[in-house]
Amino acid sequence: MILVLGATGGIGGEVCRQLKKAGTSFRAMARKQEQVDSFRKDGVDAVLGDLDQPETLSAAMSGIDTLFLVTAPKPPQVAQETAAIDAATRAGVSRIVKISASDCNVRSKIPWAKAHALIDHHLRASGVDWTILMPTAFMQNFLWFTKPVAKGYLPLGAGKGSVSWIDTRDIARVSATVLTQDGHSRATYFLTGPETFDMAEAAVQLSQMTGRKVRYLDLPVPVFHTVLRLAGNSRWMAKGLIAQFSDMVAGHHDIDPTGEVERLTGQPPRDFASFLRDHRDAFVKAA
């Protein structure tokens, strides 16, 4: 039995959909009773559990042999995921598949990159069998900028740096594959999209998709911070994104395409044009 954490999020939710479609036995964990009720109404085994309350995890992991671990980037991330790993160890879970990050490093200025590195070290030392998936930046992050794109500009502070952006649906597809296959013990996979492009090229593709001219604005840090806050990001998130784009991306430290998505699943990852077509309404209706 597989337990899916983050079952109400973008990646975890898609993992649940794919496992259900394949007829795989799994359980979804959610923090709220109405979320659990919604899963059960849809025919999915679901249980209450809260990573901020580790005492709730033992019951959620009863009868589980494989854990899918993914959490949102937030200040408590290290505490939350190490609590899940420790609870899984106590419950006798035999394998954990974890979503990490391609830029993780214990000395990173990017808070979630540092968090993932610390958690990955904890997982490897836990004694539980593991598989770690390290995706690059998510294409879905462009949805933060639907309103400015509708006004004709893409405001970021990324210089001329390029990224091998990946669609979160492809991360979920790899996750579902690895969760249901043998042969991935103690493996680390770097997941990317099929292409690398900078923000100027992203603006070109946004222009083609929306039918209106979109221009990339390479913003100074203070202005970029303001844009991120206006887009609804917390101060903590905005500071981390500035470090990510001004250092990792603008400094040309991102990784090139790896081909791992196709190797693991037999299907190539979605390109940016496909992502934009699938989310065209979000950009067009923001006008």
Rank of each mutant, 00 (worst) to 15 (best):
L3M: 11
V4M: 06
G10D: 03
I11V: 15
G13T: 08
L19A: 10
K20A: 13
A22L: 10
T24S: 15
S25F: 14
A30D: 01
A30F: 06
R31L: 07
K32V: 08
D37I: 09
R40G: 08
R40N: 10
K41S: 14
K41H: 14
D42E: 11
D45L: 09
D50L: 03
Q53R: 12
P54C: 12
S62E: 09
G63Y: 05
I64Q: 05
L69H: 09
V70K: 06
A72T: 11
E81L: 09
I85W: 07
A88F: 11
I96Y: 05
A101D: 03
A101L: 04
D103A: 08
D103S: 14
N105P: 00
R107Y: 08
K109H: 06
I110H: 05
W112N: 07
W112E: 00
A113T: 02
K114F: 04
K114Q: 04
A115V: 03
A115D: 05
L118F: 06
A125N: 12
S126F: 11
S126M: 14
D129W: 04
M134T: 13
A137V: 05
F138T: 02
M139L: 00
N141H: 12
F142T: 01
W144P: 00
W165D: 02
I166V: 15
T168G: 04
R169H: 12
D170V: 00
D170W: 03
V174Y: 02
Y189L: 08
T192S: 15
E195S: 14
T196F: 06
F197P: 02
D198F: 08
V204C: 09
V204Y: 13
V204N: 10
Q205V: 07
L206F: 06
M209Q: 08
R212H: 15
K213D: 10
K213S: 15
R215C: 01
Y216E: 06
Y216G: 02
L219M: 11
R229L: 09
A231H: 05
N233E: 09
N233K: 07
S234F: 02
S234A: 03
S234V: 05
M237I: 13
A238D: 01
L241K: 04
D254R: 10
I255D: 05
I255S: 10
P257S: 12
G259P: 01
E262G: 00
R263E: 06
G266M: 03
P268T: 10
R270A: 14
A273I: 10
S274T: 15
S274L: 09
H279S: 00
R280M: 00
A282Q: 13
V284P: 00
K285E: 13
A286Q: 10
